[in-house]
Simulated assay, not measured.
Amino acid sequence: MKTLAAALALIAPAQAGLRFPCSTLTIERLDPVVQPGAIPAAHVHHIVGGNAFNATMEGDVGERATCTTCQMAEDFSNYWTAQLYFKHPTNGSYFRVPILPVQPLLGGSQGASGGLTVYYTQFDLSRDNLNQQKITAFKPGFRMTVGSPTETGKPHVGLRYQCLTGQSRGREMDTFPTGPCTGGIFTTQHFPACWDGKNLDSPDHQSHMANTIKSDGFINAGACPSTHPVRMPQVAFETVWDTSKLNSMWPSGAPNPYVWSFEGTAAGTHADYMFGWKGDSLQRAMDKSECFYDGCGSIKKQAMSVANQCTIKETVREQTSGWLTKLPGR
């Protein structure tokens, strides 16, 4: 798989896109896409974005939100993944792994609190943008997922792990690292980018979208299929799980001690996206063609110190951090 860093190094000047940090909004058992209305949902999620997030979300959430934990001040979307836990090799207790801001390629995430980094790109970050379709922004009410917690083989295409050591991200893998990572575990969630042009969602939250990649990662994969003819922005998340204080508890040669919050293996990694940009702000950025990271200045930014003030009230009151005898909901 071509990494985001490697792909960005090859990016053509004619491409535009966005890359920005979002601080953590909440960590709790809520999932308005897969389990709407459930309080609590089945497992713990790490959630960032707009403060309209709640157990049930319909319609234009961007119009209802009043603040966002994201650097792009007009982005009230929500982005979430399962939470990572460390399972103690000796006593079987669980510890919620802290989250670090992703170190920026070109600056910009200073002051972020936990959270993740979001990408909206054109043409799968490929040099070859000939014959590519116009990028059409998502519509109010749009949502999608990638991956599945029930997967036991290999993760969905584009869902990958890297072992951080110093400034090196290491090779991309389809499973957890086999040894301690001094800089943490780096995860990437890469969404499909071709829409059927009709449905804002589907029963499995995936069928209304189709992948633009044939093997893996940020590589050119040709035009959208006739069944899903509308090319949308390519969305991806990056998260750094801070394992540094847990590595000493991983005995040499012992199996991987990390699990997702659904007691799942690496294959079950997954992510959810709910669109919430204000008005035509995302379309404006996708229409630009000569810069990257900030949409050629077409999007209003806010300081992360301001973004960090955006909060929501806790909905599910239960302990999710510290040492736990069992995972929440298990």
Rank of each mutant, 00 (worst) to 15 (best):
E263I: 00
T165A: 14
P251F: 09
A73F: 04
S109Y: 08
Q302E: 13
G183K: 03
K2S: 11
P104E: 08
T56G: 00
Q162Y: 01
T182F: 02
L246E: 09
K139S: 14
P233N: 11
Q83W: 02
H88M: 04
R29F: 09
Y273P: 00
L130M: 11
G197Y: 11
F20E: 05
E314G: 12
N91T: 14
D287H: 00
R169G: 15
G158L: 10
V102Q: 01
C70M: 12
S168P: 00
T325Q: 15
V230H: 03
K214S: 13
Q309S: 14
V33N: 13
V97T: 05
T26H: 02
M304H: 06
F176D: 00
A52N: 10
D204I: 03
N129Q: 10
L324I: 09
L4T: 12
M286Q: 11
V102P: 00
T69M: 11
S252V: 04
I99R: 10
D196R: 07
T325M: 10
L4P: 00
G153I: 02
S23I: 08
P328A: 11
D294K: 05
T66C: 10
W250T: 03
L30W: 01
G222R: 08
T269S: 03
W241F: 14
S207W: 02
Q110I: 05
L200H: 04
T66A: 12
D272Q: 07
L18W: 08
A266G: 06
E63A: 15
L324A: 05
I39E: 14
E74K: 13
G147W: 06
D75K: 07
T68G: 08
T3I: 06
R160W: 07
T265Y: 02
V240Y: 01
I312H: 11
R160D: 13
R169Y: 15
P21N: 08
A223E: 13
T24A: 04
G166A: 12
N211D: 12
V33Q: 10
D204L: 03
S244P: 05
Q133F: 05
G329L: 09
V61T: 15
Q83S: 15
D287S: 09
M57P: 03
C296K: 02
A7V: 07
H228N: 14
A303Y: 05
S202I: 03
H208S: 00
A55C: 01
A221D: 12
E151G: 02
C291P: 04
T187A: 03
A307P: 11
A223G: 03
V34K: 09
D280W: 07
I47S: 01
T90G: 07
L246A: 06
R143Y: 06
F186E: 01
A137Y: 10
P203C: 06
T81Q: 06
P36V: 07
G141I: 07
P229W: 03
D174F: 07
D128A: 13
K245M: 12
D287Q: 09
N54G: 15
V230A: 04
F186S: 02
G141S: 12
T121Q: 14
V146E: 09
M1Q: 04
G37P: 02
R231S: 13
N131E: 09
